[in-house]
Design a protein around this nucleic acid. Sequence first.
DNA 1: TCATTAACACGGG
DNA 2: CCCGTGTTAATGA
Length: 210
Amino acid sequence: MIEKISSNYSFLFEKALIEEISEVGIIKKVAKDDVLIDIGNYVRSMPLLISGAIKILRQDNDGNDLLLYFLEKGDTCAMTLSCCLGQHQSEIKAVAEVDTELIMIPVQKMEEWTSKYKSWRNFVFESYHNRLKEMLDAIDSIAFLKLDDRLLKYLKDKKELLNNDLLEITHQQIANDLNTSRVVVSRLLKSLEKKQIIKLERNKIRFLVS
DNA sequence: TCATTAACACGGG
DNA sequence: CCCGTGTTAATGA
């Protein structure tokens, strides 16, 4: 376990902290599409990502999802931080984008470390900062970009996240993440294909340019 | 004008 | 047959 933490966090945390993490942390593996946190859940432990990726979604009153951002290795969930400390219900939904490994840290420890380790404090602040930036990015995208640009951005983000030019996804799943209808996604994807940006196959989208 | 909804045909697994 | 895809027509914001 020490190795897993070290390989992803040694540049952030001092040795003593890494040792403490390995003492109290619990390794958790989740499969693609597993729901880690749902809206209304109380969160009692905080996740540190070791591998894989998690997508964070916001939900409207009718239960429609909207993609906010992704978490990757070395990230943690800022929502969890505020939920844990404030004992609030979760405002977001977290779903595994691919098979993912996490270390779960009990809330009491993370409070303790905040005063004990400077590197931990920095990490927490830095996480907040990064998540806020990504949130602004998501807002920009929704407010200022038209759906076709949003779609392209979505595909590019996903491509970089998976580090793969071939995305295995259906038009309906994209429509769910962007909170729009499949008809539109199909039409826009078709036009992207005409522009030679992507190639469409059943259940698959292949990037032709980067 | 552009998105959404419903409906339909096509085709691969 | 079922599901994903591509398209159209009607309707709405």
